[in-house]
Design a protein around this nucleic acid. Structure first.
Length: 657
RNA sequence: GCGGGCGUAGCUCAAUUGGAUAGAGCAUCUGACUACGGAUCAGAAGGUUAGGGGUUCGAGUCCCUUCGCCCGCGCCA
């Protein structure tokens, strides 16, 4: 991360956690077998009966933190106390008197009330069994959202002619995970790779490559991304020299000699600058020779980009490309529209959109938080800016694609820019859905920087930034060594696939498992550790479950377990069951918060609950075949939830490792 | 200068959005197995949640303030 990437989707850090979204459309009532929902219903009834004036109060049912307190608890009494003017414990007692938990939980008593007014609930085993049975379906309790929405996810964000590095890791990992989450919930997802492939800098590279090719110093057929990266930097340096020179000349009175040198520099730079301008004009008119070179540059860059996506098992392909160039012809007309409607106004020769006075919506609230800084959509020289393309992006995504939601997996440093673009699009009406008339929900899923173990931006020891493909390959080879060192007897034919799965798990889980807004420390050793909260550990947990079924097959145990009743007698069985039941809410939680680490935490908890179960409850050597079968069914459900959850994270599973 | 983000155990991170005794993993120490993958499980130790003030039944979480680190702030992309 030597420089701020041209394309704003690059690496970085900064600010801006989007407002938590209360999105009723994404939330859908659980099947009625979910104990949490059932308890909420019963407690709601109890509250309504005890306090009719507060019948709308939320029962606030949550799983208990500790098993010895109970299975679930209601935290409603404390909040209600103030509202009805009674002591919290008295309110709790009244709720307890009115609550009928028949068929779900043990009857409540005064002993169910704890502390200031927590009401603890213990489920009946039969209710738990029923709940597990209803979870044990193809959907694993994650029912399709209704209505399904069209959600655009902006992810990846590469720049033409620039080498991919560690800073490009987070957007595809986070964005793809969010996309998968939405897909899992039945929404229609459109991924967009907003490639930075247009504008003067790209024209400069194109001009330079053309020049080098003409001089025979470069073979277009053998062009590499490294060639392009070098050319880009050289071209940028020339441009910078020009800008710096002119600025300096204006600021200082220089001696004749210095001024002469400067002029020479500036003239040289201006020469290449003008060449770039001419190249841009040719590009815009798709002059064949120039455009061909540009296409070649595009191919070379995208090849690397899509290779990286394949290696990472990120679902981004060529069809998701929506580069800046694809908006080039839309910007002029769009800006004309903004002018005609008075959205954009002239200011000091440029064209801006003011964002400091948002109109109020139907609910009386401002359509966006006022932003002091206006956004520039056209420079005084007539050129368009980044924000202009981004606004066009929202227009296309909402107006053409019909998106009712747009999620941007982009560096947190772009926070202000994102807010401005969102606000400007809303102001222009581009974010208003053409059919429903509702304003699309626009969210910036901002993420922090990738740091090295020294706490500074991730680099090699020599200070170079690491090529992303090399970084991934190193992860794979380290994963291969780690797997080998456990001397498991693995077929050689599977070794590579296993190493890649473990590597992908390590990389993605390392990124996704912490709050994305924070910077995170990149460490091969930590992410590839097989102990603790890591991707490989979760894969291992899955492998260990699957291993039981291989062993069962060896012993000639059939599939009678598929019809067995779930076990909920032993503490470890019960805790595993309760953990499994939390799965659908965990997936929805990611969609609502745009925070993948919630699912990671859930899966780690689940794996932990399974480990305890595995330790305390023997499956294949259980006391009876009935118990064995019921435990096998519990194992099967665990494996499927683990695999499903990992797939939502974008992590493939393996059968052995 | 203005704005935003972050600050939690020695280290890396959580905390169901205001709920019970702030939880995990690593590292350290102590236990458990002739069984399903020990890549495991149980336990100990480790905290003035950067400091201070406030709001209330209750604050890591909300408000004010100080400090530290990072980031951003119209003609760059």
């Amino acid at each position: 991360m030597n420089s701020v990437p041209r394309c704003r989707r690059g690496a970085g850090s900064g600010s801006g956690r989007p407002a938590r979204r209360s999105s009723p459309l994404l939330s859908r009532p659980m099947p009625i077998q979910d104990p949490l929902q059932m308890l909420a219903q019963r407690f709601r009834g109890a509250i309504a009966a005890a306090y009719p004036q507060a019948a709308d109060a939320d029962p606030l049912i949550t799983p208990c933190k500790s098993a010895d307190m109970g299975d679930f608890q209601s935290n409603a009494a404390m909040g209600l106390a103030k509202r009805v003017g009674q002591k919290p414990r008295d309110v709790a007692a009244a709720i307890v008197r009115h609550a009928d938990l028949t068929g779900i939980a043990e009857p409540l008593t005064d002993a169910s009330i704890a502390g200031p007014g927590f009401i603890n609930v213990r489920l009946k085993a039969a209710a738990l069994r029923d709940a597990l049975s209803s979870l044990d379906s193809a959907s694993l309790g994650v029912e399709p959202a209704s209505p399904a929405k069209t959600i655009v996810v902006d992810l990846m964000g590469v720049n033409l002619a620039k080498q991919m590095h560690v800073g490009h890791l987070r957007s595809p990992i986070i964005g793809d995970c969010l996309a998968r989450t939405f897909e899992r919930l039945g929404h229609s997802v459109i991924r967009q790779n907003h490639v930075g492939d247009w504008g003067l800098p790209i024209a400069m590279v194109t001009a330079r490559i053309q020049q080098l090719a003409r001089e025979g110093r470069i073979d277009l057929a053998k062009l590499t991304l490294d060639d392009l990266d070098t050319a880009y930097k050289a071209a940028q340096a020339e441009c910078q020299r020009d800008v710096d020179g002119l600025a300096a000349a204006k600021r200082f009175g220089l001696g004749p000699k210095a001024l002469a040198e400067l002029e020479e520099q500036v003239n040289g730079a201006t020469e290449s600058f003008n060449a770039a301008r001419q190249t841009l004009v040719k590009l815009q008119s798709k002059e064949p020779q120039t455009y061909g070179v540009w296409q070649r540059i595009y191919e070379v860059t995208m090849k690397v980009c899509l290779d990286v996506c394949r290696m990472l098992r990120v679902n981004v392909t060529a069809e998701h490309n929506a580069g800046e160039s694809s908006y080039a012809d839309e910007l002029g007309p769009m800006v004309d529209d903004l002018i005609a409607r008075g959205i954009a106004v002239p200011d000091q020769g440029a064209l801006i959109i003011r964002l400091d006075d948002p109109p109020k919506g139907a609910d009386g609230k401002p359509l966006w938080e006022p932003i002091k800084e206006p956004v520039l959509v056209r420079k005084s020289d007539g050129g368009f800016l980044y924000a202009t393309t981004d606004i066009a992006g929202i227009r296309r995504r909402v107006q053409k694609f019909g998106a009712s939601e747009g999620v941007y997996a982009i560096d947190a440093r772009q926070s202000l820019q994102m807010k401005q673009v969102f606000a400007a699009s809303i102001k222009a009406g581009y974010a208003t859905h053409p059919k429903t008339g509702e304003i699309a929900l626009l969210a910036h899923a901002a993420f922090g920087a990738v740091l090295g173990e020294d706490g500074r931006p991730f680099k090699t020891r020599s200070g170079e930034s690491v090529k992303l493909a090399d970084l991934i390959e190193e992860t794979f080879s380290r994963a291969a060594k780690a797997v080998q060192s456990r001397d498991a007897e693995l077929p050689a034919s599977e070794a590579r696939a296993i190493a890649e799965a473990v590597g992908v798990a390590a990389l993605k889980y390392g990124d996704l498992s912490t709050d994305r807004i924070k910077d995170y420390v990149f460490s091969f050793d930590r992410m590839l550790a097989f102990e603790g909260n890591t991707g490989p550990y979760l894969l291992y947990a899955y492998v260990r479950v699957r291993s039981i079924f291989r062993k069962a097959a060896e012993r000639g145990i059939g599939e009678s377990w598929r019809r067995a009743a779930f076990p909920c007698e032993q503490a470890a069985e019960k805790q595993l069951a309760l953990a499994l039941l939390r799965y659908p809410a965990a997936v929805r939680g990611v969609a609502d918060s745009l925070e993948p680490h919630r699912l990671c935490q859930y899966l780690y908890d689940l794996a932990g609950a399974y480990s305890v179960f595995f330790d305390q409850c023997h499956v294949l050597n259980a006391e009876s075949e009935t118990l064995r079968d019921s435990r096998l069914r519990l194992c099967d459900l665990t494996a499927r939830v683990l695999a499903d959850g990992l797939s939502v994270l974008g992590i493939p599973t393996v059968e052995r490792m």
